[in-house]
Design a protein around this nucleic acid. Structure first.
Lengths: 203, 203, 203, 203
DNA sequence: TATGAATGAGTATTCATTCAT
DNA sequence: TATGAATGAATACTCATTCAT
């Protein structure tokens, strides 16, 4: 009888290696052989777990986004004060994107690019980054609305403020990715919190 | 006079078509044949004007970024009030990215992705998006510093506020690209201006 | 007694399943996994009984041809009249090729194709369909010669008449395989017998 | 301006080389590189003229069958006597299959095999060997019916006699392909004509 | 100058076979 | 003995680039 393999575990193992390679070389330039080499398995073995290169990409994407959501959700879970929640979203996010070794966040650049190209694709249930962004936005929006109700925040437009916050995080990440020496994301984050809160908090 | 075609003009012509195709299909998935078709010239003709697909990309990039800079520079050129300048940066930028037909801004997604991969490339004269971003940041920074001097703005950190403003614009563009129906970039911009100015202006 | 599986029996079991799959999908397009699935055994198990896919093919071939020969041999065994023998060759052959479910005769198409390719192959003990055909031909030939001696048949060329009879059977099988609705092999057989016998029998 | 190429002519040129290679190695074992080498063109060039290996096969098939039909049609065109027509079908066919160098008829074995596998294929307008066979059969059938009317032939079943004649030709071709030394197709043909005509002609 | 026919390096994917359990 | 997880050789097909006209 052959060795019983935990398929799901091995899948995840491959995903993690693939994520790294994608982040480093970009999806388009990554060869299946690169993934195989990184995962220390044979080229053919990958196909025991994934149907295609595209499927790996989708799994990497989902895995990455899930972990992103989990991080933020965990961080704000036990908080009650909306102001603290907004602060924590910034800081936990900054902590997350800098915690990874090997320039892993570079993969977001591919996610954006691929997500847009695949939007109109006939393929089933592909990357739906727009849905994920909408979710993110709504979470922040509801925190802001909570803060407006409790009197912490001014009567600003919660939806667009949420998109501004989300956008600021992404935009700063881009600058950080482009030049990590010139750009101290921790400082940028703290400063952003300050500007935003001054902008939206009741005096 | 010999039949002397204006090389530079034709180059620009090709660039414009290439830009559109890149924006629609993404750089990696765009074939030279696609560019030739779009520019209504022969496949081989492209090589009379550009050495390689990569070179086209670099020209597209430069052209696109130059026009971007020009738009903003022109818009704030005749202004003197730092507050107005900041406002105008937002609005002219928003006007610019929505003015193009055919989803042209999608090309930024490729610029980001390619810029990162090519950072360490041995090749010369490649995309140096980080330099461009640093320029952008410094321009905004100097406006902010000016405003601080004149007493319009609080004594905030001009560098990181600049990066926040720049980041917010990029981040919101991403959300807009991902779902143009859900996201009204005009409204988002106006609202952002309000939040930022409240956050950084002296009461 | 140790657990001793009858190797030969299991081999035959696999052969039968392989034959069906080959007939349906064709040899080239049949995967070892298909055979394993059909035989309800593990992929690796096949290799306990056969060295390679090619070896299975050869066994299938031999098994199939043997059974073909047996059918005909059995049918004419107890007959003495050459005319009856010729008739029976036709009818038993027609009965045989229509008796199988699942389009099993389609495998002959692969036998012919493969036999030709492998003729010059260095490999040993490969398909030697030409030998088998020569055997078949000689059997029919000797029946015809017998009939000529006994005065039933005219003094026709026994060798080429045998090849004609054999060829007619194969050729009609092809037409039947190509379109089983349009082609009633029973009727075709009966009619062929009549034409042939009229052609070769002494009035 | 580039060299103007007669696409159709070059297609035919490739077809001819492909036919030879298919006949020698069989369709499945033929690599695109083999075809390219035989046609003395680059691997990529093939794809300028054909979409896929399968498409080449279909073109080879059609070309081959068309030329087959043409040969026979031409041969019986100027004849009026049904008996002569039947004779000529045999002889022109025999002349045709032996006239080709390089074992070209071996390709029929692949045609039969592929035609059957592709019968149920979703693909469009693939090989329809059954239709072609039906055509052939009907042509012979109508000659026989003509002969019956004119009193040359007995009142045999024209349809199944036609299929018998067609089948005999194919079946003998198989034997000839399997062993060209043992089998003199000219003699076999002449002898077959004799047997058939004795079988179906009015005394 | 303009072209598109020709090319072959490069790559995702398949599948017969092996082998640890 | 039986298995299926692992493998890499093999191959159809793509596409940037070249070059004869």
């Amino acid at each position: 009888m052959p060795k019983k393999i935990d398929k799901a575990a091995k899948k995840l193992e491959i995903i993690k290696h693939a994520m790294r390679v994608f982040a480093q070389k970009g999806y388009a330039k990554t060869k299946m052989a690169d993934v195989a080499l990184a995962a220390k398995i044979g080229k053919g073995t990958i196909y025991e777990y994934f149907k295609s290169k595209d499927e790996i990409f989708n799994f990497v994407f989902t895995h990455f986004m899930d972990s992103m959501e989990t991080i933020v959700a965990k961080a704000i879970f036990k908080l009650t004060d909306p102001v603290e929640k907004i602060k924590t979203i910034f800081t936990s996010w900054a902590a997350h994107i800098t915690s990874h070794e090997n320039d892993i966040m570079e993969i977001m650049l591919d996610f954006w690019a691929e997500a847009v190209r695949k939007k109109d694709d006939k393929e089933i249930a592909m990357i739906q980054l727009d849905k994920i962004y909408d979710d993110f936005r709504r979470i922040i929006q509801s925190i802001l609305e909570e803060g407006i109700r409790t009197g912490s925040f001014k009567k600003i437009d919660a939806y667009y403020t949420a998109s501004l916050i989300l956008g600021a995080m992404d935009g700063m990440m881009i600058q950080w990715i482009l030049n990590k020496e010139l750009f101290d994301i921790k400082k940028a984050t703290e400063h952003s919190i300050q500007v935003f809160l001054t902008g939206i908090c009741v005096d």
